[in-house]
Design a protein around this nucleic acid. Structure first.
Lengths: 192, 192
DNA sequence: CGTCTATTTGAATGTACTCAAAAGCGGTGG
DNA sequence: CCACCGCTTTTGAGTACATTCAAATAGACG
């Protein structure tokens, strides 16, 4: 069961049968419909979430009401409103399914229990977070140093075939540009 | 000794006297002159670095030779080229002292040793990385959703009095704008 | 004091934005 | 199965913001 997730984990730490079982016992499978929220800004973020199937987006809504895509999580990604999760405060972002999806949830308390009961998971998430750190720095560098066209090209390489799954307007908002600008950039690139 | 660092750590984990000592034994104090490199892009990143005093900047140099400031690390911050550190590959960024500085270094191998010998440090760095995760997401949101003027205002609030310490051109490159644009933004704001 | 670097200012250019409207696409119900 | 509706994407025109390049001014350091 949950072979996907186990594969992911065993790339970094070795779990005994018992550790696996106690981990799995904390996981709550859930199906999400397209457009269904996993987290809404303002609510507490109660879960860490692993995507088995489908596609979620995390987005921030600014004062003027515009949405800004923080993260696109596909199969085998972890997602949550990290701010809400670690502070216990209201979440800053929304997380919504863009396709009918299947996820595994770990409740905040269970997550903390897991970390203290099976310290190997401290290592696992530390490593995951280090990689996220590098990925975030990369995205920041791109944002501050590259024009939108180049950021779009990089995006399509990082998420191959995602354009067939996700409305372009969300990609635009991930890149920090308007849908109109993305449309023009794509037209531009098509003519090459 | 190293009270600063101990304070920081004890906010998150409790260390026994022995654990403290074994931790401190791994730390290498180093003084850096202004403009001295701690890491150069292309070299291996051998250290995790804690800033006791002074101010460092981490920056990326693109193909056209422009510098882009990824991070500004002042007192009590940790810094390193995380990519180089976790992969063992050549560093992607430079880290340079902007003031004469004092830092504590942990060699890559010692760092890994520490994590396996004293698992509490897994927790400590996991928590640090979670906070960095949130901070990075915040910066990404700002980059994709706010005009340069607002990003600059936020920056001055996040790093109060840093403008007295750091040349403006590095702040501009942190914000992803040219020094000329920052100059105009500041002029603009001054007239309010 | 002089030199080197950082910052400011100006003018022209370019990139991305807004607002408005048209075209395309997908799903639903008759 | 087609027609319609709502949402996404494209296109156009005008505007705003930030850039480039060049030059002047100001500051810091030896």
């Amino acid at each position: 069961m949950h072979k996907q997730l186990l594969n992911d984990i065993s790339g970094f730490i070795d779990l005994s049968k018992e550790e696996q079982d106690s981990f799995f016992s904390l996981l709550q499978p859930r199906k999400l419909r397209r457009k269904q929220y996993l987290v809404q800004a303002g609510d507490a973020c109660r879960y860490e979430c692993y995507v088995l199937k489908g596609c979620l987006r995390q987005y921030y809504v600014d004062e003027s009401g515009s949405e800004h895509t923080v993260m696109i999580a596909i199969e085998n990604w972890w997602t949550s409103d990290m701010y809400g999760l670690i502070t216990g405060n209201a979440s800053l972002t929304n997380i919504e399914a863009m396709e009918d999806s299947e996820v595994l949830l770990i409740e905040k308390n269970d997550f903390e229990k897991l970390l203290s009961l099976v310290p190997k998971f401290e290592k696992f998430f530390r490593i995951k977070l280090q990689r996220a750190f590098v990925a975030h720095q990369k995205r920041i560098i791109e944002n501050i140093s590259m024009p939108a066209e180049q950021r779009y090209i990089n995006f399509t390489q990082q998420y191959p075939s995602i354009e067939q799954r996700v409305p372009l307007k969300y990609i635009a908002s991930y890149l920090g540009i308007t849908p109109e600008s993305l449309s023009r950039i794509r037209k531009q690139l098509a003519g090459k």
